[in-house]
């Protein structure tokens, strides 16, 4: 099963209960790496075929794939 990185954003009503949301995400098969209570996000990974089901968890506003940012190499003139 291919694991994909995900960022789950918790809705406003459930930010205070983010640990409960994280527990429910674990029950759905997500490997939770970080529970970020101040910004209201849970990060981690999940098998690709289970990703869709995370959206059904109560308190979840968004399930996003992980984007990467990349700076130019240190000797590039434009940073």
């Amino acid at each position: 099963m291919a694991q994909v990185s995900v960022t789950v954003t918790v809705d406003d009503e459930h930010v205070r209960a983010i640990t409960d949301v994280a527990a429910a995400l674990r029950d759905r098969g997500m490997h939770v790496e970080q529970v970020l209570g101040t910004v209201g996000a849970v990060t981690g990974s999940v098998p690709q075929e289970l990703r869709q089901s995370l959206s059904d968890v109560v308190g979840v506003a968004h399930v996003s794939g992980e984007t990467r940012v990349q700076l130019p190499p240190p000797d590039a003139p434009v940073q």
Binding site: T7, Q70, P74
Partner: peptide, 10 residues
Amino acid sequence: GSGTDSSILA
């Protein structure tokens, strides 16, 4: 110079 959402959000 690379980073992920999880690091940035953290």
